[in-house]
Amino acid sequence: MKLATIRIHDATRAVRIDGDTAVDLGESDLVHFLRHVDWPARATAADGERYEGPLDYAPVVVAPEKVVCVGLNYRHHIMEMGRELPQHPTLFSKYARALVGAYDDVILPASSTQVDWEAELAVVIGAEVRHADPEQARAAIAGYTVLNDVTARDWQFRTPQWHQGKTFEATTPVGPWLVTADDPAVAARGLSLACEVDGDTVQKADTGDLVFDPATLVAYVSGIVTLAPGDVIATGTPGGVGHACNQARYL
Rank of each mutant, 00 (worst) to 15 (best):
R16P: 05
I17G: 07
G19T: 07
A22K: 02
V23P: 02
S28L: 13
L30C: 11
V31E: 06
H32Y: 10
L34W: 03
L34H: 02
R35E: 10
R35L: 02
V37R: 13
P40E: 12
P40F: 12
P40G: 12
P40K: 12
R42Y: 08
R42C: 06
A43M: 01
A45S: 08
A46F: 00
D47G: 03
G48T: 00
E49N: 10
R50C: 00
Y51G: 08
G53V: 07
P54N: 08
Y57V: 04
A58I: 12
P59C: 02
P64Y: 10
P64R: 08
E65A: 15
K66T: 01
V67K: 04
V68F: 04
V68T: 07
C69W: 00
V70C: 05
G71F: 02
L72M: 13
Y74L: 11
R75F: 15
R75G: 13
R75V: 13
H77M: 03
I78M: 01
M79N: 12
M79A: 10
E80P: 04
E84T: 13
L85K: 08
P86T: 04
Q87I: 10
H88F: 13
L91P: 05
S93W: 07
A98G: 10
L99D: 00
V100N: 11
V100D: 09
V100T: 14
G101W: 02
D104I: 06
D105S: 14
D105L: 14
D105I: 07
P109W: 13
A110K: 13
S112Y: 05
S112E: 00
D116M: 03
D116V: 03
W117H: 07
E118C: 06
E118T: 07
E118A: 07
A119Q: 10
E120K: 04
V123P: 04
V123D: 05
V124W: 09
V124Q: 10
V124Y: 09
I125F: 03
G126H: 12
G126N: 13
A127L: 14
E128R: 10
E128S: 14
V129S: 01
R130F: 13
D133F: 14
